[in-house]
Design a protein around this nucleic acid. Structure first.
Lengths: 265, 265
DNA sequence: TAGGAAAGTTCCAAATAGTGAAACTTAGTT
DNA sequence: AACTAAGTTTCACTATTTGGAACTTTCCTA
């Protein structure tokens, strides 16, 4: 059934096991993993041993449960700092959030999903699904649609195919056709809305973060509630957001290689 | 020089390469990695290929640079949620930070280092691991010393041996002997201070988070400046912190296995 | 508390995946 | 065009991984 990770290689298998443990979202015993694993007992056992030895997972001796290890948290901190827009965008997010006073999200595309890499809460916070490191759907979030709309056609088609089109709310777009039309509209408008498509009462306006070359680096959204804003009043913020977005893009490009590093042996 | 990761195994090697890329903290080219790598060209090349294929690192085609990938960020979010105290401690940190109005740190031991897993700033609350994920020294931080003081003797000795004892400030303890004496004092006092040992002007008071069994789960500290607090005025907060700490410990233990999961095939 | 079943661990010959020196291709100089 | 360095592929050799089965431990049940 599962089509992912069918490539051979010990490393791939070990990482699959990591994913599997992550998917449980709680400490798991060997037997539970074995049941949902495609690997035979001895193999799984050795993979787990290796991962424990490497510090990628921890094994609680008292109850025999495996959990993701701290080495992962450390690695990810570096990943977040190095390969995400977050560090570059941070001051701009701070400023935008302060001026607008609504929740601001910074996201990037991860395969066919939206990965939130940073967030600023509204002055009056609303409890909602999203945190840095979390993933969300592309087809019914503002940032997702904004990033998708400006993606190269090939990638766009692939991602459109891969969506699940679950109907979260009355407003959720649930067909590829509808999504394609929406993307066209977004392109000509220049920005994307989320019209309560993911959560009732939650709306947002989103813009892509584009490199000079046109490459999609990420997306930025301002989220609010129908109680506080209309789509029009969110649209009024677009010039402001556009300004932020282009400054982030500018910085991101120049920060790629901080200095030319040259050395000779 | 580097003593870590000398165990054989492809998985170990691949993870070493990951660490190596992480250590650069910026996009790295193949040649740079090769130079600082213990593996031959072809081997390193294949390891990188595997990691790229697995989504653990990304390879920018235009400049040939490798960066840590987004799969890592996703995995780490799960790690943070599952295996750290952060999710359990969150409401308590919020409350404590609000009442005390000073910076609060939640930390755990990662080998011989302090890993910060959550933080509340005095003024601006930060959502997630923009700050969490950082590491710090054990021998000159409040949380580090607090956790070390209540660690099993064997682990304690090992960690004491592994410290670097860099003299950050005039107050830094720079000998194992001095650290051992300090740990004794902390044990009998019941909590640890940081007397400007890491940064001038920065002081803190820290308590360990202990399970029923006595096992060290983590540490909690309240940090301030010499301008705003004396050690005595920080010590006055101890009862408050102690209360928070024991409630976190309680919750952490009962949250280990939320429910008994039973199923038969 | 003995008996039994399930969970977890170890073994080892066969199979496979990993290794790395060297050859090769491509990109960047002079 | 000729040269040089960076990056990629090849392939015979080798070490690691594999997984069925046997073993040990743990935990339940009667």
């Amino acid at each position: 059934m599962s089509e992912r990770g069918h490539e051979a290689g010990t490393v791939g298998k070990a990482l699959n096991v990591l994913d599997q443990i992550a998917a449980f979202g709680r400490p798991v015993k060997f037997a539970e993993l074995l049941e949902s694993s495609e690997y035979p007992k001895a193999t799984l056992y050795r993979l787990l041993q290796t991962l424990v030895q490497q510090g990628m997972i921890a094994h609680d001796a008292t109850n025999g449960a495996y959990t993701l290890g701290v080495r992962l948290v450390r690695l990810a901190h570096q990943a977040w700092q190095t390969s995400s827009l977050a560090p570059v965008a941070r001051p701009y997010l701070d400023a935008l959030s302060l001026e607008i006073g609504e929740t601001v999200h910074l996201a990037q595309l991860d395969h066919a999903q939206v990965l939130y890499v940073d967030k600023r809460n509204a002055a009056v916070p609303v409890e909602m699904y999203s945190q840095a490191g979390k993933v969300g759907p592309v087809y019914c979030t503002g940032v997702g649609k904004a990033m998708l709309a400006w993606s190269p056609l090939e990638a766009q088609s692939r991602i459109i195919e891969q969506q699940s089109y679950h109907k979260f709310t009355d407003q959720t777009l649930t067909t590829r056709r509808a999504l394609r039309a929406e993307l066209d509209a977004i392109c000509s408008r220049g920005y994307a809305f989320d019209r309560e498509e993911h959560e009732p009462g939650i709306i947002c306006v989103a813009l892509p973060i584009l490199a000079q070359s046109g490459q999609v680096l990420g997306g930025l959204s301002v989220t609010s509630t129908t109680a506080r804003h209309s789509l029009d009043s969110l649209a009024a913020l677009v010039p402001h957001i556009k300004n932020t977005v282009s400054r982030i893009a500018e910085d991101a490009e120049s920060w790629r290689f901080p200095e030319q590093i040259r050395e000779r042996a």
